[in-house]
Simulated assay, not measured.
Amino acid sequence: MTTRTGSPRVRRRPTRSGVVLEPGLIIEAALRLIEAPGGNALTVRRLGVELGADPSAVYRYFRDLDALLIAIADRLISETLAGFEPGPDWAASLRELGERVHDSMLRHPRLAQLRAVRFTAGPNELRSDDIGIGLLLRAGFPPAEAVRHHADFIDAVLALAAMDAAELAPGQEQTDRQALARTYASFDAAEYPHLAAVREHLPQVTSSPFPGVLDKLIYALRRRAEEL
């Protein structure tokens, strides 16, 4: 468990500012510090200042900073699912779920890598998995296939979203695009004949691969479902 909110030993005493601490309040304060201008400013000491509480009070709710980060990641999954209702077309609903995950990752880029590689084991991740696997079961996939396809699908979405959310230094993305444009315009066609044959299309490789890969994933799942 990432929090100890159900323990009767947690005493909800007011902070110096008169606010009664609870896990949701701590998560929101930590998220503000992570997304503060100038870079991630989250430390337990700064979190105590933000909450107007002794920093050690955080440990009454989260065993350590890592547990707090996992709880934040699970909270962001709830943002992904807010208002989402699967429709009659399982594949269209799965696509929307993937797009929602991608959009949420881009809104919170400093947590994208964490969300891509860690399991939260929290209620929102469980709900997301339940929805995704449920869509695949509805499509007719046997249980084992539904689990495997869902894992492949969501891992691909998370990986692509983490790539798109990666924070580059100011001007770095533009510099990279300009360097690629110069390379594509000047390479030796005799040495790279296949690249030369598609030279005019090469600039598109700098665009996000997410839409195209999502199309391919949904298409492959539809085709597989039709074969069942």
Score class of each variant (00 low, 15 high):
R118Y: 07
A29F: 06
A189D: 12
F62H: 01
I26M: 04
D188G: 09
F187Q: 02
L33C: 04
L214G: 06
A190F: 07
R222P: 09
V101L: 07
R148T: 15
G171C: 09
T5H: 10
L76A: 04
H150F: 15
A121S: 06
I70W: 01
A30G: 10
G87K: 00
V20W: 01
F62L: 04
P170T: 02
A36W: 01
E191F: 09
Y61C: 06
E99G: 06
R177S: 11
A112K: 03
L214D: 00
P55A: 02
E99D: 10
S56R: 12
A139M: 02
F210T: 02
H102D: 00
G38Y: 13
A29T: 09
E35Y: 11
I218K: 01
D152M: 14
F153L: 05
G83L: 07
T80I: 08
I34P: 13
R110A: 13
I218L: 05
R177Q: 15
T43R: 04
E226D: 10
H102C: 01
V44S: 05
L126H: 13
A220L: 11
M163W: 14
E35C: 14
I72G: 03
G98V: 03
D103P: 10
V198G: 05
L202R: 12
A73W: 01
P55D: 05
A225G: 10
L168R: 07
A67W: 02
L81G: 12
I133D: 00
P142R: 03
K216N: 08
L65E: 09
R148Y: 14
G52I: 08
